[in-house]
Design a binder for these strands. Structure first.
Ligand code: ZN
Length: 542
DNA sequence: GATGTTTGACCCATC
DNA sequence: AGATGGGTCAAACAT
C-alpha cells in the first residue's frame, strides 16, 4: 500500500449484547484488519486485507471522531504515519456514541471509550497494548462492555418483525439515498433485480438488489464509491439517533420464523427495527462483482461487495475483497451454501510470480458431527478470484469461550498458546500448526500458519502467505520463519480434512488437495468468506 | 413542481 | 449475424 492510501470500512454494533473484536495488522507484518462484531448470536466480521506491510518503523493507531452529528465514530490506523487505513466504525445503536478519539496507539496504552449517553447506556472499553513495536508485535484489545441495563433490545419487538427465514431482510438502509432506475427479471434467478443509483449529484454509485418473490432481500451488490458523505438525517430523535451500516450485514435468526432483524440505518422512533445493509466503504475506487454459480441445478446466486482501497493506491496495489452473499430461496437444496468471492491481485504482484490457479482445497469443520465443509478454489471465469464455498450449516454453536464472554477481549500478543489455552481449551493448535500446510511442497512462502479464528466464527485452518498476515493472536515477528497462533476464543476448530495429524474425522476422497494455490487468496477468501458465511447461515432455517 | 417508481425500449456484451 | 441476457434509459406514472 502506498503512502496515504486508505482503506475505509465500517462496522456496526448494537446497543446490547455484543462484543467487538478488532484486529489490527502488525506494523510490519500485518496485512489484514479484522473487525469482528457479535450481536448475540449474530456475527459480523469484516476483514480487510490491508497489505500495509512495509516493514519498517513503529506505527501508530489513531482514532478519530466522526465528523458531523451522526453517531458515526471512526478510527484511523496509521501505518508509519503514511499508510492510512481509515476504518470507519459505524455504530448501529439508537443513541450517540462518544468515542474518545483520537488517541495514539502507544505502548501499554489503555484507552477507555464510553459510548452512549442515554438510550444505549453502553460503555466501551478499549484497551490497547502495544507490546513491542520494535519486535513487530502488537496487541490491541478492545472491549465493548454493555452497561447494566442492556439497552433497548426488546425480544418481543424482534418477534414482531418479519424475520426472513432466508435472505437478508426486507429493508436495506445504508444511509444513502437511492433512486431506482430499473428492474429486471434475471434469467438465472427467480428473483427480480432492482437497480438504483445514488441520488447525490455526480455520484455514480449504483446498487443492485435482488429480492425474492416474498420481498426478501436476497442479494445486494454495490458498484462504485460514493464521493460524498452520507446525507444527514432530516430529523433527530432524541440524541442523535442514527444508525448506519457499512460493509457487511448482520443477520440473526437463531430460531427460524417470521422475524426480521435488520441492521442499518433505520431511524424509527422505537429504535428497535434493525435493518440489514451492506454498502461499500467510502473509497474512491470500489467495484463489485456479480458472479454466477448456476452450475448444475444449483440456483444459488452470488453477489459481491467490494471492500476497496483508496484510489491513491497504485492500480497494481489494489485489493478487492468481494464478498458474495448468497441466499437460498430458490435453491433446491439440501445444504445451505455460501459462496464468497475474493479478488486479490496483491499476491501476484508481490510474489514476483503467479501461483498456480488451478488448485483447490477442502476443509471441514472439526466439530464432532458437524458436516460443514469449505471449498476454496480459483474462479474459473476469472482467475483473479478465489471462491470459497461453504456447504452446510454448523450444527453447533460458537465456542463457549466466545459466547461466555460478554466483552470478548481481543488480543494479539506474543503468547498465543496462552490465549488458546484460555479461550479454547479444546483447540489443538499444535496439531493445526504441524499440519501439512507447512509441507515444503508449497511453492510460496508458506511458512505461516493462520487459523481463521479471528475472521471466522468457525475458523478454518489455513496455509498462509508471506504477505498475508497473521491477523489474530500470532507471533508477529516477521523475521522468523513462521508465524503461528490463533484466535481460538473465536473459533471452533476447523481443520483441513486431509492434512490432519490426528484426523478424528473420517476423510473422504474429495478432501483437501491443496497443491499450492496462492496462500494469500486463501486467506483473504477465508477471512471474508467466513464472516459472510456466518452472516448468512445465521439466517438459515435450522 | 419535485422526487421517486414503474416499465418497455434500448444498448451492448457474449455465445 | 442472430439470439440471448444483463444493465440502463427515459417516458409515463405515482406520491
Ligand atoms: Zn453517493
Amino acid at each position: 500500500m502506498l503512502p496515504n492510501s486508505q482503506i475505509k470500512f465500517s462496522f456496526f454494533f448494537l446497543a446490547d449484547h455484543f462484543d467487538l473484536q478488532f484486529f489490527l495488522p502488525s506494523p510490519t507484518t500485518g496485512t489484514f484488519l479484522l473487525l469482528h462484531l457479535n450481536y448475540e448470536s449474530s456475527i459480523l466480521n469484516t476483514v480487510i486485507p490491508a497489505d500495509v506491510d512495509k516493514g519498517s518503523s513503529a506505527s501508530s493507531f489513531r482514532f478519530k471522531p466522526h465528523k458531523g452529528p451522526g453517531p458515526v465514530p471512526d478510527f484511523t490506523i496509521l501505518e508509519n504515519q503514511e499508510n492510512n487505513i481509515d476504518c470507519q466504525a459505524v455504530v448501529a445503536v439508537e443513541s450517540s456514541m462518544a468515542f474518545e478519539f483520537p488517541f495514539e496507539f502507544l505502548k501499554d496504552t489503555t484507552t477507555k471509550i464510553c459510548a452512549g449517553d442515554s438510550a444505549t447506556d453502553m460503555k466501551v472499553d478499549v484497551q490497547m497494548d502495544h507490546a513491542d513495536v520494535a519486535s513487530n508485535q502488537t496487541s490491541l484489545q478492545m472491549e465493548l462492555v454493555p452497561r447494566e441495563n442492556v439497552g433497548t433490545h426488546d425480544p418481543q419487538e424482534e418477534e414482531k418483525g418479519t424475520f426472513p427465514a432466508r435472505g437478508i431482510g426486507r429493508n436495506l438502509e445504508d444511509g444513502y439515498n437511492w433512486r431506482k432506475y430499473g428492474q429486471k427479471q434475471a434469467k438465472c434467478s427467480e428473483n427480480p433485480r432492482s437497480y438504483s443509483k445514488c441520488t447525490h449529484p455526480y455520484c455514480q454509485v449504483r446498487k443492485k438488489i435482488e429480492r425474492s418473490p416474498d420481498d426478501q432481500i436476497m442479494e445486494v451488490i454495490y458498484k462504485g464509491a460514493h464521493n460524498h458523505p452520507k446525507p444527514q438525517p432530516n430529523h433527530h430523535e432524541g440524541s442523535e439517533t442514527c444508525i448506519k451500516v457499512e460493509v457487511g450485514s448482520v443477520l440473526k435468526n437463531s430460531s427460524p420464523g417470521p422475524k426480521d432483524v435488520k441492521v442499518g440505518s433505520d431511524r424509527r422512533a422505537d429504535g428497535m427495527e434493525r435493518t440489514s445493509s451492506t454498502s461499500v466503504a467510502e473509497t474512491s475506487e470500489l467495484s463489485s462483482t456479480l458472479v454466477s454459480n448456476d452450475d448444475d441445478d444449483d440456483r444459488a446466486t452470488q453477489g459481491s461487495i467490494s471492500i476497496g482501497v483508496d484510489a491513491d493506491i497504485e492500480e497494481s496495489e489494489k485489493i478487492e475483497s468481494c464478498l458474495v452473499e448468497t441466499s437460498f430461496a430458490s435453491r433446491t437444496v439440501h445444504e445451505p451454501r455460501v459462496v464468497v468471492q475474493i479478488e486479490s491481485e496483491v499476491d501476484m504482484l508481490h510474489d514476483g510470480h503467479r501461483q498456480s490457479k488451478y488448485v483447490w482445497s477442502y476443509y471441514k469443520c472439526t466439530s464432532a458431527g458437524c458436516s460443514v465443509r469449505k471449498h476454496v478454489e480459483r474462479a474459473s471465469h476469472n482467475l483473479k478470484y478465489v471462491i470459497t464455498t461453504y456447504e452446510g450449516k454448523h450444527d453447533h454453536k460458537v465456542p463457549a469461550a466466545r459466547n461466555n464472554s460478554p466483552a470478548l477481549a481481543l488480543t494479539r500478543n506474543t503468547k498465543p498458546e496462552t490465549q488458546i489455552k484460555d479461550f479454547a481449551p479444546g483447540f489443538d493448535r499444535k496439531t493445526a500448526f504441524n499440519n501439512d500446510y507447512l509441507r515444503p511442497s508449497f511453492p510460496g512462502n508458506f511458512s505461516n500458519e493462520t487459523k481463521l479464528g479471528a475472521a471466522s466464527i468457525y475458523p478454518l485452518k489455513f496455509p498462509t502467505f508471506k504477505h498475508t498476515i497473521p491477523y489474530s493472536s500470532f507471533e508477529f515477528n516477521r523475521s522468523t520463519t513462521h508465524h503461528s497462533g490463533s484466535i481460538a476464543s473465536l473459533s471452533q476448530p476447523f481443520r483441513s480434512r486431509q492434512p490432519l495429524v490426528k484426523p478424528k474425522i473420517e476423510q473422504r476422497e474429495d478432501d483437501v488437495y491443496d497443491t499450492g494455490q496462492s496462500r494469500t487468496d486463501h486467506v483473504n477468501a477465508s477471512q471474508s468468506s467466513s464472516s459472510l458465511y456466518q452472516h448468512i447461515t445465521d439466517n438459515f432455517p435450522s
